[in-house]
Amino acid sequence: MTTTRAANRFGSTLLAMGLFAVSLSASAEDVKVTLTGAEEVPAVTTQAKGEGTITIAKDMSVTGSVKTSGVEGIAAHIHLAEPGKNGPPVVTLTKGEDGSWSAPAGSKLTEEQYQAFKAGHLYVNVHSAAHKGGEIRGQLKP
Score class of each variant (00 low, 15 high):
L80P: 00
G50R: 05
V41F: 06
K67G: 02
F20A: 15
Q139G: 08
K32N: 13
V71P: 02
A38S: 14
E111S: 13
M60H: 14
A6Q: 13
K67Q: 14
S61V: 01
S23P: 00
A76T: 00
T110V: 02
S12K: 12
I136F: 08
V44H: 10
T110F: 03
Y123E: 06
T46E: 11
E39A: 15
L140A: 05
T53F: 01
P42W: 05
G18K: 03
T2C: 00
T34F: 04
I54F: 03
P88Q: 12
H121L: 01
G50F: 05
E51K: 14
V91D: 11
E39N: 15
F10V: 10
H121M: 02
E51L: 07
A26C: 08
A7K: 14
L109P: 04
A103V: 09
V22D: 06
M17V: 13
L122I: 09
A103M: 08
T46S: 13
K32D: 12
T36A: 11
P83C: 05
E40L: 06
S25K: 11
D30T: 09
F20K: 02
Q115G: 00
L35F: 10
T45G: 07
E97Q: 14
K141Q: 14
V22K: 01
A43V: 01
T94Y: 01
T55E: 11
A76N: 00
H77T: 01
G73Q: 05
R9W: 08
D98R: 10
G99E: 07
F117W: 03
V33R: 08
G64T: 09
I136A: 12
A28E: 14
S61E: 11
S12T: 11
S100G: 06
S102L: 07
L140G: 06
G134D: 08
K85T: 04
L35Y: 08
L93D: 09
F117V: 04
G70N: 06
T45V: 14
G64K: 09
A81P: 00
G50Y: 06
E29N: 12
W101R: 11
N8A: 15
G64M: 07
G134L: 04
A130S: 13
A26V: 04
P89G: 04
A48M: 05
I56L: 08
G134K: 08
K95A: 15
S27K: 04
A105S: 15
